[in-house]
Amino acid sequence: MSRVPSPPPPAEMSSGPVAESWCYTQIKVVKFSYMWTINNFSFCREEMGEVIKSSTFSSGANDKLKWCLRVNPKGLDEESKDYLSLYLLLVSCPKSEVRAKFKFSILNAKGEETKAMESQRAYRFVQGKDWGFKKFIRRDFLLDEANGLLPDDKLTLFCEVSVVQDSVNISGQNTMNMVKVPECRLADELGGLWENSRFTDCCLCVAGQEFQAHKAILAARSPVFSAMFEHEMEESKKNRVEINDVEPEVFKEMMCFIYTGKAPNLDKMADDLLAAADKYALERLKVMCEDALCSNLSVENAAEILILADLHSADQLKTQAVDFINYHASDVLETSGWKSMVVSHPHLVAEAYRSLASAQCPFLGPPRKRLKQS
């Protein structure tokens, strides 16, 4: 649940008159999402009104509101027999009622949201009550392989729920002597030191190019640089560091992050930047690179990204790559990247197969709970 924001200063709310007192009302909304995959969808019983329910879910471990999704594969009634019906059901509720908006969509073979439908307002739910769409999607369109909505005969539904909580009022009075504290510009100011090479005390040599930097900042941000300058190493004695395995453009992006906490060109060089972040123990930059690479996972590059993640101990990226390969196994196994990995990294192939087997055979063990970014 997000923290209630402070109200904007009255002088910034309007260029008009300023009242002596004010009130700011925040209506709290808890948002969460749920993904439900139905394997072997074409084998569902086709009687009209037949119901399939998901397991229950909530916004978190401490949330007492429990929900589930309900599907009628062949419609709810005679009117909707040519459609799939989809509903959000409130299973248990400690209150007399709650209000919530919802959005349903289908994830296609690429994991993209399609055929989205959402409620136009927050509906009133009581325990045992459901709301949804009797005519969510035509069955003939859903079952047509050309539309790519049932890869490997799996129907994957994605649901986003927004639950309306209580409202909170914050009130106060205006004073004539309003003090406005300026925003912190530390990142910009440190970035200026790097860009202008002011007050530098060490030189970093990268592929024949020299960059002036500040030992204190490098040591504070990177345990690797800290070790170089702290001990009686040649880098500490000469205040000069030779860097041979990072390209200059990648190095500059890494230094921008060290000084400012930002990497504006990360998406263009996420793979190389991940390697640099791993070498210099820049954990936050490493996770930022993992996130960017996750966003660009595809059938063509899944094997290469899995190898990269394994090489640099990028655990979150590795998990996402394995899950992606499992979901698109029939396509990924035909790529040149996968065939190369079979020869060069057989242990990763074995890991992917083990994960695929456990996903398809849940009876082999208890269900695993899916539970950071600093």
Rank of each mutant, 00 (worst) to 15 (best):
A213K: 14
S55L: 07
L371S: 15
M35S: 08
K110Y: 14
R284I: 05
S167H: 05
G148N: 13
F211K: 09
V343S: 09
S236T: 11
I106G: 05
V71P: 03
K103M: 12
S330L: 06
L356Q: 04
E113D: 02
H328I: 06
V287F: 01
R368L: 12
R139P: 13
L333Y: 09
L76S: 15
N196D: 09
G261P: 00
E79C: 09
D140T: 10
N39C: 05
E160H: 13
K215A: 13
A281I: 09
L149M: 14
S119W: 00
V181F: 01
S295L: 14
K64F: 12
F141C: 09
V51S: 07
E20F: 08
V206I: 11
G208M: 13
S2N: 07
T114E: 13
D130H: 08
S226W: 14
K115T: 01
V179H: 07
F57E: 00
M35H: 03
V332L: 10
L149D: 03
Y353V: 09
H347R: 08
L157G: 00
L89Y: 13
A321E: 01
G128L: 14
I305A: 09
A275W: 04
R138E: 11
T175E: 09
A146C: 07
S55A: 00
P182M: 02
Y327G: 04
L149R: 09
R284E: 04
S42M: 05
L142W: 12
K372F: 09
W338E: 00
S344L: 07
E230K: 07
S171T: 02
S80A: 11
L89V: 08
V51C: 08
D267V: 03
L69K: 03
S167M: 03
V206C: 14
S374H: 14
F229V: 15
V18L: 04
A276Y: 02
D77V: 07
V246N: 03
C44W: 05
S14R: 07
Q316G: 09
C256D: 05
F158P: 00
K369C: 02
K135Y: 09
S295E: 09
R221W: 05
E189L: 11
T37D: 10
M48W: 05
S96R: 11
F125K: 01
A109Y: 07
E195L: 10
S167V: 05
Q212G: 15
P5M: 01
K134Y: 05
L311H: 03
N174P: 04
L186N: 03
R221H: 12
D315L: 13
F136L: 10
K74L: 04
K318L: 06
E160W: 05
C289I: 12
E235R: 04
A11F: 09
G191S: 09
N40L: 05
C93E: 10
L157N: 00
R99S: 15
P73K: 09
A321Q: 01
V343L: 05
I305W: 08
Q209N: 11
S295Y: 15
A357T: 02
K28Q: 12
S15V: 10
E118M: 02
R368F: 11
V163E: 03
M228F: 14
S85V: 14
I137N: 06
L157R: 00
Y123P: 07
I137K: 03
C205E: 15
E249M: 01
G60Q: 09
E230C: 14
I307G: 06
V322E: 10
V250F: 05
A220Y: 14
K28C: 08
G75I: 11
P151M: 11
E47W: 04
A146P: 11
F41I: 04
K237N: 01
L282M: 09
K134P: 04
S85M: 15
L348R: 04
L65W: 09
V343T: 05
E12N: 10
F257Y: 05
A277P: 01
E300V: 05
S340T: 09
P17K: 15
F324E: 02
F211A: 12
K103A: 03
Q127N: 11
S6A: 06
P10K: 04
I217T: 10
V164M: 08
R284L: 06
P223L: 11
N39Y: 05
E46T: 04
S226Q: 15
A116H: 15
L333N: 07
N174I: 04
G128V: 10
Q320K: 08
A11L: 07
S54T: 02
M178E: 05
A61E: 05
K268Y: 05
A281H: 06
S162T: 15
F32D: 04
D153A: 06
Q360A: 11
A11D: 13
S14A: 02
A277M: 01
F225S: 00
L356R: 07
C159F: 06
Y24T: 08
I137T: 05
I38P: 00
E304Y: 11
L364C: 15
R121E: 09
T37S: 06
G208I: 10
D144E: 05
Q316D: 02
M13I: 03
Q316I: 03
S336V: 12
L69C: 11
M1Q: 00
A314N: 06
L89S: 05
N296L: 14
C23P: 00
S167D: 01
E253G: 02
C68V: 12
D166G: 13
F211S: 12
R221C: 15
S58T: 06
D315Y: 07
L76C: 15
V332I: 02
D144R: 03
F43S: 08
M254E: 00
C202N: 09
L65N: 13
I38F: 05
V342H: 07
V91H: 07
E230Y: 15
S2G: 00
S85P: 09
A227V: 14
S171N: 03
A219M: 15
K64V: 09
E113L: 08
C44G: 11
P264I: 06
K180N: 07
A213S: 05
S167A: 04
E118N: 10
G75Y: 01
E300L: 12
P73C: 09
L193I: 02
L273V: 02
I325G: 00
Q209H: 07
S236I: 04
Q360L: 14
S162Q: 12
V29F: 02
H328S: 08
M233Q: 04
L65G: 13
V168M: 08
H345S: 03
Y87Q: 00
E20L: 10
T156V: 08
S119Q: 00
H345R: 01
S336A: 13
S42R: 09
V91P: 06
L333I: 06
K74I: 10
F136V: 14
R354H: 05
V343D: 09
E234A: 14
Q127P: 04
